[in-house]
């Protein structure tokens, strides 16, 4: 059973269509990347999953039920805009959020201390948030979202504002939660993290889903580009969309920049060359990065490699 099921979700704010007919599912243990430019509808969707705002139409199922605060004990959430009570100590903050999620104080304290130790903040457990650095406070906030060992962990732009060391720490926590069986959804502008972590991706543009699937499936969305050196004219090969010569031929060998038709696998073209006796001196496939895919499907605005 999916931890989260979203079906035909629509959200309007007046005349603005923030989310448009969005459907997706996230399974236990899956890391699900929620990618889109600014204003794509990522945060709005996450807020609807949390029942902070209600959808205009469509349905959401969290752990088999409609979104409700009673499920907060099974959900962990790290918002994009972060902040904590400046006068509260780190451990009290974690306990407070643990208690709001239905935990008892002792368990929340024990788990909170474990998390602070993992985050190298055990000696600052009793320090007030106002006395901590921004990075430390962000780790405390991450701990508040993990303290209840959630079945659904939702992280909205979790890497923003973190230094590389803490980004690594966060990646480990995401993997740890996934290995524990939690469904993890995170939105990000940083494609490296999504490429490294996500089992599946969803690309949003202006509230509408542009793609959902694995990274490989995403790559298949873009035509493959191959650098080929052959003594044969490759433009006539089946599956080739275009082939542009690069430089002048040398002893009859010409370099070509080949673009395949969408959906055509480079392997099938290579196989055809092999069976047809077309001689090749070079065959370099250029695999599309997630950045390329994002730019192609969503647009380049607001994306970081």
């Amino acid at each position: 059973m999916s931890v989260l099921e979203v079906s035909n979700l629509v959200k309007r704010f007046g005349d603005v269509l923030a989310v448009n007919d969005l459907s997706f599912e996230v399974a236990p243990g899956e890391i699900f990347g929620f990618l889109g430019g600014n204003g794509a509808g990522k945060t709005t969707t996450l807020r609807m999953v949390l029942d902070i705002i209600r959808p205009t139409s469509g349905s959401i199922s969290v752990l088999g039920a409609a979104p409700d605060r009673r499920q907060s004990s099974a959900i962990g959430f790290l918002p994009e805009e972060r902040g904590l009570y400046a006068a509260m100590s780190a451990i009290d903050t974690i306990i407070y959020f643990g208690r709001l999620k239905g935990m008892d104080t002792a368990t929340a304290r024990a788990r909170g201390m474990q998390l602070l130790e993992r985050f190298d903040l055990a000696d600052r457990a009793k320090s007030e948030i106002g006395d901590m650095s921004k990075g430390m406070a962000q780790k405390v906030q991450l701990a508040t979202s993990l303290v209840n060992q959630p079945e659904l962990l939702m992280l909205d732009e979790p890497f923003s504002g973190l230094d590389p060391v803490n980004q690594g720490l966060l990646e480990n926590e995401i993997l740890r939660a996934s290995q524990r069986g939690a469904a993890v959804i995170f939105s990000t502008h940083v494609m490296q993290h999504a490429e490294r972590l996500c089992d599946r991706l969803l690309l949003l543009r202006k509230g509408r889903k542009r793609f959902e699937g694995t990274l490989e499936e995403a790559r298949a969305q873009l035509p493959a580009h191959i650098a080929v050196v052959s003594n044969h004219k490759v433009t006539a090969l089946p599956g080739v969309h275009s082939a542009d010569p690069v430089g002048a031929p040398v002893d009859g060998w010409q370099e070509w920049q080949v673009e395949l038709d969408p959906g055509v696998q480079p392997e099938s073209v290579l196989e055809h060359c092999s069976t047809s006796g077309i001689a090749l001196r070079r065959w370099n496939e250029h695999r599309a990065s997630l950045h390329d895919i994002f730019v192609e499907l969503v647009g380049g605005e607001g994306v970081e490699e």
């Binding site: 918002p79 508040t144 979202s145």
Partner: peptide, 11 residues
Amino acid sequence: NKLLESLLACI
């Protein structure tokens, strides 16, 4: 301090 969203995710 922008902690309302964290609170509203719980209550």
